[in-house]
């Protein structure tokens, strides 16, 4: 089992992700350069947070033309696990690997804080170790995390159980006050139809050790390991 963490020019959470995989969940991990064209030997790919290509044009808009994205599209089509965190989520929507788009936060501010996420589905390789409705404390840090999709797309992802996490109040209720950025339906994370590509604005990489205030993020990485172990046995 091997994880890959992609580095784009401007990624800044690449080392956080690498560290969690290597030193917290103790699995093999290597960096993948944005110019790389092969993902041979990798079982899961992480697109980390940051500001790929300085967020020029639009967040994620230029990263999608990197050579590595062609390899990631192919990898995802063949069922490989891909998780995009924060800027990684923005890159996945720009690339068309996930539906919708991430707009400027409604409040115009960059928001950096711990908040609560409600787990909406456990039927994904990223949440198989969680229970439905489980609340996670995971921080966000973004200026453009306002999830948008047209009415038809929104209905489709809701009907297909593709919404994985929603911003929630501490009691688990989905409220306007709990929504930090204006995302439709309080959406914080979604999967694709094949359920092997996850994008989420909150940072599990910043909440995988108790010294950081929460270990809930680790559950997502551990779910991925469960899924990969299960796949090896099958």
């Amino acid at each position: 089992m091997k994880f890959g963490v992609v580095i784009f020019p401007g990624s800044n959470c690449d080392h956080d992700c690498y560290y969690v995989i290597e030193s917290v969940i103790h699995k093999p991990v290597e960096f993948v350069w944005h110019q790389d064209t092969s993902l041979k030997g990798f079982d899961a790919i992480v697109l980390p947070g940051g500001f790929a290509y300085g967020d020029y044009l639009r967040t994620g808009a230029l990263a999608k033309f990197s050579p590595v994205m062609t390899a990631i599209r192919d990898f995802a089509r063949k069922g490989g696990l891909v998780i995009g965190i924060c800027n990684g989520f923005q890159i996945l929507t720009e690339s068309g690997l996930l539906p919708g788009a991430l707009l400027r936060n409604v409040g115009m501010k960059y928001v950096c804080k711990f908040l609560h996420l409600r787990t909406e589905t456990v039927n994904t390789p990223f949440t198989n170790g969680l229970s439905k409705g489980q609340l996670l404390q995971i921080p966000i840090g973004h200026g453009e995390g306002n999830y948008f999709a047209d009415t038809e797309t929104l209905k489709r992802i809701e009907d297909n159980d593709q919404v994985v996490f929603r911003y929630a109040a501490p009691d688990g209720q989905i409220t306007g006050d709990a929504n930090p950025n204006g995302s439709l339906h309080n959406i914080a994370g979604i999967v694709n139809e094949q359920r092997n590509v996850l994008g989420m604005m909150p940072h599990p990489d910043r909440s995988s050790e108790s010294i950081l205030g929460s270990v809930d993020g680790k559950l997502i990485f551990e779910s991925m390991v469960n899924a990969l172990v299960g796949a090896q046995k099958a």
């Binding site: 044009l57 639009r58 808009a61 033309f65 929507t93 720009e94 539906p99 919708g100 788009a101 707009l103 948008f148 999709a149 047209d150």
Partner: peptide, 8 residues
């Protein structure tokens, strides 16, 4: 293909 994101 570059300057516009057709979703938005």
């Amino acid at each position: 293909e570059v300057l516009t994101n057709p979703v938005i």
